[in-house]
Design a protein around this nucleic acid. Structure first.
Length: 352
DNA sequence: TTAGGGTTAG
């Protein structure tokens, strides 16, 4: 769309300015068309137009979203070379991307670089850091950052609370998570679906299904519509308790409500059955997912192979290994670990 | 009418 606009401008001999280019580049980045965005950046440079930090940030964001951190950092270097100072947003994008790729050390290094430059972190910087700490299982450090954030006069947002709730849940500190949820509401932050999902998932992971379903009712009372993430968590919780049939029933419940079960839904069920040793049922869900247009993934195959190996059906597991490879799904360590255990001597004599 | 943060499957 944007590119046609540029052609029209050219025909009418209207010279696009830096802002126009920036808008177009940003749009292309959002669509994931980084090659086109890069060409447009070159074109604007040829015309003697200087991109702004915002334009570079859009490009960096686009690269990060594709998991291409090398290019993201290249753009950062390029802007520095051109004398365009990276902004807090630039750092936020890069730090966030590093955490997403589990490159936590590098993320923390970048934060230090930011501090050394005298840049002032904002609420989003803190949220990224807090979430990073929560993801690495360091809830206490996350709460230290919360204090630091408050000390700098930056108000925690709903996102801050969601990350902290998630971090506490990850550590099975469910009562504290509930307390924090109340605290957020008390501070006038209205909970949204993501916040509820984080809390529900926590309770599901801890086997507290009664509380999880209570939260489902609560969010519906507030006219919030649950989504596939909500139901996938509930299904996982039930599966962990061995209640896989009940979990499977939620697939119908979702459909009834107009929520489309996704890949995660099916993989959750397959794992549930496999964990219980019911590989036949697991395979039936595999067929179901296929019939609904979802291709089995590495997670699907790993669950099935693990289930088969546990049942001593190593031959069938090997068959699935061949199948996954032929379908272009690359096995990983856990695939082979299952197979080694399953094919060993068939008696599982290994002790931990 | 240019840019950034939170939730689900082994």
């Amino acid at each position: 769309m944007g590119l046609e606009m540029l052609d029209i401008m050219r025909e009418k001999a209207i010279e696009p300015d830096s802002y126009t280019y920036g808008t177009l580049i940003s749009g292309l980045c959002k669509e994931g068309r980084l090659q086109d965005a890069s060409m447009m950046l070159a074109e604007m440079s040829d015309r003697g137009l200087v991109p702004t930090a915002v334009t570079y940030n859009a490009l960096i964001d686009g690269c990060c979203n594709k998991g291409n951190l090398d290019d993201a950092f290249r753009y950062r270097d390029e802007m520095v070379e051109k004398g365009i100072e990276p902004t807090v947003c630039t750092y936020n994008l890069l730090v966030h991307a590093l955490f997403m790729e589990a490159q936590n050390e590098e993320a923390h290094t970048l934060i230090r670089e930011m501090e050394q430059k005298g840049m002032v972190p904002d609420a989003i910087t803190f949220n990224i850091l807090i979430n990073g700490y929560c993801k690495e299982g360091n809830a206490d450090k996350a709460f230290k950052m919360l204090e630091e954030m408050k000390g700098k006069g930056i108000r925690p947002t709903r996102v801050t609370y969601t990350s902290l709730i998630y971090g506490l849940c990850k550590k099975n500190r469910l009562a504290e998570a509930d307390g924090l949820f109340k605290e957020a509401m008390h501070k006038g932050l209205l909970p949204d679906l993501v916040m509820y999902n984080a809390l529900i998932d926590g309770h599901c992971g801890g086997g507290k299904m009664e509380r999880a379903f209570e939260l489902l009712k609560e969010l519906e009372r507030k006219k919030i519509t649950p989504d596939e993430v909500t139901f996938n968590s509930l299904m996982r919780g039930l599966c962990l308790l061995g209640k896989v049939e009940e979990a499977r029933g939620l697939i119908d419940e979702m459909t009834r409500r107009g929520i489309r079960p996704d890949l995660v839904s099916y993989n959750t069920l397959i794992s549930g059955y496999s964990r219980r040793g019911d590989v036949k049922d697991a395979l039936s869900v595999r067929d179901l997912m296929l019939s609904r247009g979802f291709n089995p993934t590495l997670i699907t195959y790993n669950a099935l192979i693990q289930g088969l190996c546990k049942n001593g059906e190593g031959d069938h597991a090997e068959q699935l290994l061949k199948e996954m490879v032929s379908k272009g799904v690359t096995p990983d360590d856990s695939t082979y670990l299952s197979l080694i255990e399953g094919l060993g001597d068939g008696k599982n004599t290994r002790k931990n």
